[in-house]
Design a protein around this nucleic acid. Structure first.
Length: 208
DNA sequence: GAGTCACG
DNA sequence: GGCT
């Protein structure tokens, strides 16, 4: 079977064990207490996303009627985003050792019916570093395609504790979440799924 | 005419 | 396939 998929993605199943997942959830709960989940809106149409989100790290991804962008403050509270948890910096150092440190961790919270249409992550100034994804809670049916929207796609499941690294040619691959599998995890008390994506946003400064 | 589409 |  041919595989014309972009290369460079790495799927690391069960990267985090149960206790690491629980600790990570506590870190995210703390971050979300400081920077509450907000509902983004699609540019132009103003249609609400089905996911809610927040961020940690120096920059956060937001979307509203004006467009997609990274900004240093929460769109509703005006506060700076919480610090990047150390465990996520360590994950990045492990899977992206040659990349400069991550600047944004987007926190997406999926309730049972939430989905994410096929899209590319291309709001960053640099695509040199990979996007690193961590799944927590209910399993997601994930879809990964190529760098052209019409390219063929494949779907696979992302379970709690799995890490997916989109680097190299896959850095700009279309991807999305078709649906959740409700009840597939007991990690989150109320069900649902948390997805964390770590990104480098700005090009690192040239060395003197 | 593409879209973090919309639906079956 | 349909709408912005």
């Amino acid at each position: 079977m041919t595989n014309d998929f972009p290369e460079g993605f790495r799927f690391l199943p069960s990267y985090f064990d149960k206790s690491a997942q629980e600790a990570l959830v506590e870190e995210i709960r703390a971050a979300v207490r400081a920077a509450p989940l907000f509902r983004p809106f699609m540019p132009r149409t103003g249609k609400p996303f089905s996911v809610r989100m927040s961020n940690c790290g120096p920059l956060g991804w937001v979307s509203d009627i004006k467009g997609y962008r990274y900004q240093p403050r929460h769109p509703e509270t005006g506060e700076a985003w919480p610090e990047m948890p150390a465990v996520l910096s360590r994950l990045w150092a492990d899977v992206a050792p040659d990349a400069p440190p991550p600047e944004a961790c987007l926190i997406n919270y999926y309730e049972e019916k939430a989905r994410m249409g096929l899209h590319q992550d291309r709001d960053e100034d640099t695509f040199d570093a990979p996007v690193v994804s961590v799944s927590l809670g209910d399993t997601a049916v994930f879809r990964l395609g190529g760098t052209a929207r019409k390219a063929p796609t494949r779907s696979f499941r992302l379970s709690s504790g799995d890490v997916l690294v989109l680097g190299g040619a896959s850095r700009l691959a279309y991807h999305g979440v078709d649906r959740l599998i409700p009840g597939s995890s007991t990690l989150l008390a109320g069900g649902g799924r948390i997805n964390l994506t770590l990104r480098r946003v700005t090009a690192p400064e040239a060395e003197a």
